[in-house]
């Protein structure tokens, strides 16, 4: 078995061994190594420090580092598990693993819930849902009147909030998604199925044999 620690380029803050990350996620060692190539690219796009900053994520998502977006902010916050303002390699791989086609659906449902739970209260509230619809309108060409927004939010909220207590809890969310599976379609990235084949430029010479 080779020694990954011999590569100086991999001495970056938050770097974790691909073997460990592969053991904890649906990724193989080769795929984790391919993800490291992607991580290096993203984490050096503005500040070359081996960490993904919020502006770097925004640049990758929008090709514009100044394009602030509520949902990109939420993605960043959820990936930044340590809450230290940057995404480290281990956080990147573990968070992306939820988007793997083979990841448990329950994990995808839970991750999406946290995305929508803007204020981290453990519930999705009506005001949060309205704020997100308004944010979506702001970033798109879609134009809706205030009355239309209220109607969409009311209708969606009533469908999901089956207990009628004015907020959507994780159980209600799970049930709602099971009836509307398209809601978590964006929680699966087919690219991750075999990133080493889909993105040949990311393929690096693996120093560790995959255990599969």
């Amino acid at each position: 078995m080779g020694c990954l620690c011999s590569k100086n380029t991999k001495w970056t803050p938050g770097y974790e061994e691909p073997t460990i990350l592969a053991a904890e996620t649906p990724f193989t060692v080769s795929e984790v190594e391919a993800l490291y190539e992607l991580f290096k690219k993203l984490s050096s796009s503005i500040i070359d420090d081996g960490l993904i900053h919020k502006e770097e994520l925004q640049l990758a998502l929008f090709k514009n580092k100044n394009n602030r977006n509520l949902f990109a902010d939420r993605i960043f916050d959820l990936f930044d598990v340590k809450r230290n303002g940057v995404i480290e390699f281990g956080e990147f791989v573990r968070s992306l693993s939820v988007f793997h086609p083979n990841a448990p659906v329950a994990d995808k449902i839970a991750f999406a819930f946290r995305l929508y739970d803007l204020r981290n209260t453990g519930f999705i509230e009506r005001e949060e849902l309205k704020e997100m619809v308004l944010a979506l309108l702001h970033e798109s060409d879609l134009i809706l009147s205030d009355d239309d927004v209220e109607m969409i939010v009311d209708k969606s909220f009533k469908e999901a909030d089956t207990t009628g207590d004015g907020r959507i809890d994780p159980e209600e969310w799970k049930e709602f998604v099971s009836k509307n599976p398209s809601l978590i379609k964006n929680m699966t990235l087919p690219y991750l199925k075999d990133i080493t084949l889909a993105f040949p430029s990311f393929v690096v010479s693996s120093e560790v044999e995959d255990s599969e």
Partner: peptide
Amino acid sequence: ANPVSMNAFELISKSQGLNLSSLFEK
């Protein structure tokens, strides 16, 4: 589809900020 008949969550899920496939674009 008439947006008013759409589900708010479905609408939101189409945000570019939630489209992580962009991360893989070269």
